[in-house]
Amino acid sequence: MSESVIRIASIYPTLLGTYGDGGNVLALKHRAGLHGLVTDVVDVSPGEPLPRDCDLYVLGGGEDTAQVAAADSLRADGGMTQAVDRGAAVLAICAGYQLIGREFPDATGAPSAGVGILDIRTDRLPKRAVGELLTRPDPQAPAGLTDLLTGYENHAGATHLGPDARPLAQVEFGVGNGDVSEGAISGHVMGTYLHGPCLARNPQIADVLLGWVVGEQLPHIAEREVEELRAERLEFVRRSGR
């Protein structure tokens, strides 16, 4: 395989893909194409060894039982830690975000061990967070992340960042991590509660991830459909009394 091909692992789409998060992989392929980059996507099923040589690993959202199963399988495999150590990029959404941290609540609310590639711990919010989520990239967010981030959240997790993680963004509307911050970044590992799917509604995040892989900041390329959707969602939040 040529070195110019970006290899993307879609981790356990059968377990982690409840909220259209498969769209993130489609969006990565699509954005890469706009930038003249070639991608190769590998779907990984639970029980299969995680490919060790991918450039980008993507995890979606899932139900409680599936989330624990996915975390157990990834911990047993050990490949995620190795991938992060050699600088691979990771995007993890919602349940995927929680499970790459140190611990998260299982279906009964008891703490369950995470994969531990992101310095976060998750417990339960007093009330489930369901609705439109709008955030502003954190001042320390990666270069190229300048636009407001838009999506939909549906989770019961209160996520607490440890010293080795910094927030992806600050909440303008919605709940996010539960303490006004949203998501987390550490090195090339990024987690967020933004569904939508996240990358279809926020192409700048896709460009940051692809930029990490190719080692340079990618120029912004706007697409009419995406810009119209973003404008509509921002207007919706404004009218909802942001």
């Binding site: 769209g23 489609l26 969006a27 699509h30 279809a200 509604r201 697409e223 459909e225 995406v226 119209e228 959707l229 509509e232």
Partner: peptide, 17 residues
């Protein structure tokens, strides 16, 4: 319809909104 348009864009399906 705009969410659908973005979805169809990624599915490479011709569309009008």
């Amino acid at each position: 319809r705009r969410d659908l348009a973005v979805r169809l864009l990624h599915a490479e399906v011709d569309h009008v909104v």
